[in-house]
């Protein structure tokens, strides 16, 4: 019987796997681009982790899958990423009462009960505004690497206004700003601000209670983080690795199932 617990989070853009040991500590973790077949990516990442630790598949006692690809992944159980995210964050930040998660295609605000149970949540409409995908499209339009837009946006002098709620319209707004000669930093500040505004507005549907933890791939974007903190009027905690927290939650659930 294995002594390890695996959490697999197959997201729209990135796949993450977290392996816990018997004590519930992170033994290994890995991330990769989901691409066309997130399931295969998850298998490959898992195989790599086990290899690295000198473990065999049979050493994994329980696997819990989450994220978009969870349904078809051969796990012992699949759970929604909202429940897993809540669990992962509560583990890292026992005092957390609100989680703001901005991922590739989704953004979510989750209100937590002590212990990490979900009290309420809100998610974005079926539209890319307010998600990582929005940032990716705008980064593409401005020819700036996605990882750099946050820091660059913080150098803005005069933030441009991006008002459209439609990604396609917003892209045309960005192009208008470009043709009007606005500096990239100013446009990017507008872009980051627009994502933050969208999520800030969503957060009032669930209510905000400190501590607030900001997680998901976009939490690495310093521009969005700064704008979000400003709009919410309070500080945000960001996990050291904000990408893997839902996978961590899934692994914790796996350990609980054993």
């Amino acid at each position: 019987m294995g002594k390890y617990f695996l959490g697999v989070d197959i997201g729209s853009l990135t796949t993450k796997v977290v392996l816990l040991n018997e004590a519930g500590e992170i033994a290994a973790r890995a991330t990769g681009r989901s691409g066309y077949g997130g399931r295969d990516v998850a298998r490959r990442l898992t195989a790599g982790l086990l290899d690295e630790k000198g473990l065999a598949g049979s050493d994994v006692a329980v696997t819990v899958a989450t994220g978009y690809g969870r349904i078809t992944y051969p796990a012992d159980r699949e759970m929604s990423e909202i429940t897993c995210q809540a669990r992962g964050i509560a583990h890292l930040f026992p005092g957390a009462r609100t989680v703001i998660d901005i991922g590739g295609q989704d953004s979510k605000v989750i209100r937590l009960l002590p212990g990490g149970k979900v009290a309420d949540f809100a998610m974005n409409d079926k539209c890319a505004a307010g998600t990582g995908r929005f940032l990716e499209v705008m980064a593409g339009a401005l020819e700036v690497p996605l990882e750099e837009i946050g820091d660059l946006s913080l150098q803005a002098g005069n933030q441009c206004d991006i008002s459209s709620f439609c990604t396609v319209f917003a892209e045309s707004e960005v192009i208008s700003h470009v043709s009007a000669g606005a500096p990239k930093a100013d446009i990017l500040a507008g872009v980051c601000n627009s994502v933050a505004a969208r999520v800030a507005s969503m957060s009032s549907r669930t209510g905000l209670e400190p501590e607030i933890v900001f997680t998901g791939g976009v939490a690495r974007n310093s521009g969005v983080a700064a704008s979000l903190a400003k709009q919410l009027g309070c500080g945000l905690k960001i996990p050291e690795d904000p990408v893997i927290t839902a996978a961590l939650g899934a692994a914790l659930f796996a350990r609980g199932l054993a």
């Binding site: 978009y68 349904i71 759970m79 929604s80 990423e81 909202i82 429940t83 295609q105 989704d106 149970k117 979900v118 009290a119 309420d120 949540f121 998610m123 409409d125 079926k126």
Partner: peptide, 22 residues
């Protein structure tokens, strides 16, 4: 829950699942 038509897909599944889990 907002649906385009009657079909519930991946995004709805996440919302419903989290709701039922909660």
């Amino acid at each position: 829950l907002e649906l385009e038509g009657a079909d519930a897909g991946g995004p709805e599944r996440t919302r419903l699942q989290a709701f039922i889990e909660s």
